[in-house]
């Protein structure tokens, strides 16, 4: 009985969200408000039990006092509630932004720069192996020209502009392939929802 009620609620709410495809309407507004409210509450509870408790409270309870620093910075964020001293919350923000930038500097330099360049360096011709030669050339030329496109210190004119144009063509071709691939995966999501409506709810699909 409870399960049946759950299926009906889920199906009706799905239809409510789908009704947006026709136009904005009170039914959609109700579903949207419910979705936003429930999910905000859910995330609050999730954050409390999966972040606050294990990462701060449990560590402090176990005597790992170093975590008090994170706790203090967290409390500083809440000082925004007091306008006179709200500016102190900027310290926490500065810590988050500064740490992120510092941590990602070497990480991206290695993963997005050095490793990708290392994997792009390959012989531009392989004696007696035409398919391999063509494959290597496509990778080397595509990466080289793509990188030229993202070079901001020089106007895209002349030979340099030609390289940049080839680069953006490579990028657009890859976007086309990616578009098709992702649309396919979205279709499977839609099919999953239709399967729920016509199978689990209405029982028309066995």
């Amino acid at each position: 009985m409870v399960e049946t009620i759950g299926i009906w609620i889920a199906a009706i709410l799905t239809l409510g969200i789908f009704s947006f495809l026709y136009k904005d309407n009170p039914f959609y507004k109700f579903c949207e408000s419910l979705f936003v409210g429930v999910s905000a509450g859910y995330w609050f509870a999730t954050t409390f039990w999966q972040v606050m408790m294990p990462k701060l409270v449990d560590n402090l309870a176990a005597g790992r006092w170093i975590y008090i620093i994170g706790g203090i910075f967290g409390i500083l964020m809440l000082l925004r509630l007091f306008p006179k001293i709200g500016w102190i919350s900027r310290w926490s923000l500065a810590l988050v932004v500064g740490t992120t930038a510092g941590l990602y500097f070497t990480r991206y330099l290695v993963s997005n720069g050095m490793v990708q360049t290392e994997n792009t360096i390959m012989p531009i011709f392989v004696t007696g192996n035409l398919p391999q030669t063509i494959g290597n050339l496509v990778i080397v030329v595509g990466t080289f020209c793509g990188l030229v496109y993202f070079f901001f210190s020089k106007e895209h004119k002349g030979t340099f502009g030609g390289f940049a144009k080839v680069g953006i063509w490579f990028i657009m071709v890859s976007f086309g392939a990616s578009f098709g691939y992702t649309v396919m995966s979205r279709m499977s999501l839609l099919l999953g929802r239709l399967d729920y409506l016509f199978g689990t709810w209405l029982g028309l699909i066995k």
């Binding site: 360096i121 080289f144 990188l147 070079f151």
Partner: peptide, 27 residues
Amino acid sequence: GKFIFLFFILVGSILLAFGVYDLRVFL
């Protein structure tokens, strides 16, 4: 930084094709 990577890709691939030197050791 991008200029350095462009240099590595272009020169590294040519040197590798001729079997002269493998610039990947620096990466």
